[in-house]
Design a protein around this nucleic acid. Structure first.
Lengths: 300, 300
DNA sequence: ATAATAGTGTCTTTCAGACAGTATAGT
DNA sequence: ACTATACTGTCTGAAAGACACTATTAT
């Protein structure tokens, strides 16, 4: 017995006659935040190179925001899974398969793109910089790795009897050689009785196209958060690394220094000794470690 | 001096002539997970009512999945912010303004809707059940509150020298009177060297339309997670509550029992005494508390 | 020898888990 | 008096923070 709807149609009849083109539809894109941690120049035979957190940006060659820098990304086609589209963009940009990627957030303000209504889903990807120096994609000198930093510059809390208002100003800075981009993001949280809402807006921006500075800030927040309770850092590390390198990766992501002894105690159970050592440094050699796959508890 | 692109157009000229309709576009919808915690029937003058976690579902009156239950939601129109669309759906379904809502995840498999290509952004909303019993929207008996539970039924970890495979089977059960819906979701995580990926799929489903069982599971995971480190529980509570009620809310969400003394120690700093007490229960009266707005540290 | 990093030991405080105990309303 | 809940005290062990100490290499 076939189920019929109120028009008397079976499911097959309904689907065959379904008309999808009645309404105007938004375009859908993916935006990629591709992070890596890489070494700066070596200062002396003794000193270790300084690490920094980097993100890939592309220079816009057309209106709007022409000449400014944007996140890599592109349109999702009608027969393409959105995650596949993100992987495709990743492959196009950094030309590596099988790298860590996770969905971040979908941005859907009406006027976020002056060309047309565009809803964009942002993804974060983490790449080991040693895999990378091959090439930054083929659109070569329009794609560059920017050193990125984010810091809280103001925090304000207003209390009322039944709630509070919280405001934070966060400054993000991107630099690559002489190019310096920056933005100030305002985050808001209101609590009044049982009513809660949070919101975020761009207060000031230099050289970063669209709402991409806000997306970058969102990604940094996620990365800082997840590094504390997951094993995602290892996506940013070569397969063998010293504990000091691992600690530096944590430090550039978190934006603060950690105490060595405590750090080691904390991550000890996630790594495994390889038996190998570094050499040719003007100081005591360092043990090389790998990720220890025995460690893990839940899927997400 | 006006910037011109490679076709010699200024930004205004470019935007005026921009044609957005070259490609076929997906439809975009929002799906709402509306959670509440509500009391069951009172068994005796002495016993406290049992709480349960509930989620609002609507019965589908048309193909596809006709007769099955789906999350409330709908299309985002071309000139509507996606968050606004979510608020609109919320208002339509539960008829309350100003309730907690956060974006969860965007689902973009090509064949997730047999009618057409539909990308859907899911939102989670938390409602205090005492505000609620007014009415469950106007599409009355097609919208029902289902008691929801989720539990891990199998966990498997396969180790290899450079990584591991993790599989988890999770069962979710929804019930409302005689109606019982269920699904089994398989979560996968693979780690092989630096290559990591996670994935999720529906293994078995009864009575839940589309990929909505997977979305519900995702929402429960998020709720369980966030309840541990944020103040979102208070969105599910009336403005005055006892600590036992608060503990019960935690317990139905986490799906496990907590020790009273420890629970109280942990949440003490988030609540404030009102000076009032419960009465008419066959046992010692209980202090009534409110949320303490003095507590808080960061916006997100 | 020295500079710069590698690596360890331990004290203190905080917090989570477990459990046992006392208190008090309504019938 | 009894039942069901309300509320408190304390022991334990694990983990986080702070800091001082020893070890080892290339020049």
């Amino acid at each position: 017995m076939e189920l019929k709807n109120k028009d008397g149609l079976t499911e097959k009849e309904f689907l065959d006659t379904y008309n999808d083109s009645m309404y105007k539809k938004p375009s859908f894109t993916v935006d990629m935040l591709i992070f890596t941690v890489s070494d700066g120049p070596r200062q002396s035979y003794r000193k270790l190179p300084q690490k920094s957190l980097k993100i890939l940006m592309v220079k816009r060659g057309n209106h709007p925001y022409m000449g400014q820098w944007a996140l890599p990304g592109g349109f999702v086609s009608i027969d393409e899974n959105i995650n596949d589209a993100a992987y495709r963009e990743l492959k196009e940009e950094v030309n590596i398969d099988n790298i860590y990627m996770e969905q971040l957030y979908t941005w859907g303000a009406v006027d976020r793109d002056p060309r047309a209504r565009v809803i964009s889903c942002s993804y974060m990807s983490l790449v080991d910089s040693s895999m990378l120096n091959v090439k930054a994609g083929d659109d070569a000198d329009d794609a560059k790795w920017f050193t990125v930093s984010s810091s809280l510059i103001e925090q304000k809390k207003e209390m009322s009897p039944k709630g509070y208002k919280l405001r934070e100003l966060v400054k993000i800075e991107l630099s690559c050689g002489d190019i310096c981009l920056s933005a100030i993001i305002k985050k808001k949280k209101n609590v009044e009785g049982r009513v809660r809402n949070t919101d975020s807006e761009i207060v000031d921006v230099h050289g970063i196209a669209f709402d991409h500075s806000m997306i970058i800030q969102y990604g940094i927040d996620r990365l800082r958060n997840k590094i504390e309770y997951t094993d995602i850092v290892f996506n940013l590390m070569p397969s063998e690394f010293t504990l000091t390198e691992l600690q530096q990766a944590y430090e550039v992501i978190l934006g603060r220094e950690l105490l060595k002894a405590n750090f080691r105690r904390k991550i000890m159970h996630m790594v495994k000794e390889t038996g190998k050592f570094t050499a040719d440094a003007g100081h005591r050699p360092s043990k090389l470690y790998t990720f220890n796959p025995d460690w893990v508890e839940r899927v997400f």
